[in-house]
Design a protein around this nucleic acid. Structure first.
Lengths: 200, 200
DNA sequence: TCTTGGTTTGACCAAACGGTCAAAAGAACG
DNA sequence: CGTTCTTTTGACCGTTTGGTCAAACCAAGA
């Protein structure tokens, strides 16, 4: 039976995870140092290691927390709903995730870029299973003529790409469209795109 | 007057750049070590530094070589051509770049994720200028009713996102669609998507 | 208050890091 | 062959890195 965390434990663990998310999402696992995280968290390095046993433990905790919700938008795609509405709503949920959790998106992107050594098995099990299930649903819609006959895998890839781009390539987006909030325009554009793609 | 490079110089410089591209594109600048590059290139570490004065010199050389061709597909978008054809052809050029130079795409992605410290000025000058120019062209097409009235910035972002995704998230794509070559399906899907988006 | 358990720190360590250097080894060419 | 220039290497250096540890510090309840 593990003890309930103290007030200080809660505060410091949260600070470390937030600081770790800042740094890991920018530099990846190998490019991140404990000193960077410690400074961002406002703690000393040995104090970090009092709360997490290693650099990898922080990274793992972040990845696990991320994966808890990462697949939710796709899971919520309902085979019984209206096809175009369902896919549009899925894309909007994914876009909202990019807007509200850009660091998590970049953490995921970094992990994939590095070959996904720590989450590869999830990609091949949970993710693949989920995608297979939902592509079957989408293919069913296409076969019934409810949506245009698109490749459901590439449809899902395109939704991932379109939505995550605004978080992962934020620096580039900001450079090209300075000042404005890209997410408002992205939401409108996304609706346009998806309704056009799927029009039977 | 710089001397012509010897046969050995050509071979070893090329080996180092290729090895550096392998490692930098996976782990980013900070996450990459000279030993990794040296081993991948089949040279000793001091021998590396005989050809490139520092880790940063290798990275800079790679980024410069990348940027030479990175913007070419968009530059070739012709205001005098057929609007839908031009944009579709642009997307296909960009997709071909992802297929033929996936490591370069990942190197770029890594640089952006890390805040683009070494190429930020290019994003704000060359890239922004080019995008502004081409969005003006696209907006002109939209105003004349030649294509649907889409936001040209988000249109370009979507082409970047869709095409680079197959290189940058290769591991994930392979996990979900094992065995198959995603680029064939992507090319077909891309044509479908763009023609649908732009139909006036 | 005192005691107990949670928290913080400075000093330290071995390994890995980017980089240097002088000397050895090898190519090129008359 | 001998000479000159290029290439390669092993030994080394100072710094950074992930991590340890004992000791000091502090919060909180009895």
């Amino acid at each position: 039976m593990t003890k309930a965390p103290t007030r200080i434990q809660k505060r410091n663990r949260a600070a470390i995870l937030s600081a770790g998310l800042d740094v890991f999402s920018q530099y990846g696992f190998r490019g991140t140092t404990l000193d960077q995280i410690a400074e961002a968290a406002g703690l000393s390095k040995p104090n970090l290691l009092y709360y997490f046993s290693s650099k990898e433990a922080i990274h793992t905790a972040l990845l696990e927390r991320l994966l808890e919700n990462w697949l939710d938008p796709l899971k919520a795609l309902d085979a019984a709903g209206d096809p175009v509405q369902e896919i549009m709503a899925y894309a909007q949920r994914k876009l909202a995730l990019s807007k509200d959790f850009p660091r998590e998106s970049r953490l995921f992107a970094n992990e994939i870029l590095q070959g996904a050594p720590r989450i590869e098995y999830i990609l091949h099990t949970d993710l693949k299973q989920l995608v297979d299930e939902k592509t079957t649903v989408i293919k069913g819609w296409a076969d019934k003529g409810k949506i245009a006959p698109v490749d459901p895998y590439h449809l899902i890839f395109s939704i991932w790409a379109l939505t995550q781009h605004y978080a992962d390539f934020d620096v580039q987006v900001q450079a090209v469209m300075p000042g404005s909030d890209p997410y408002a325009g992205a939401a409108t554009y996304l609706d346009h795109v998806i309704s056009r793609i799927l029009q039977p």
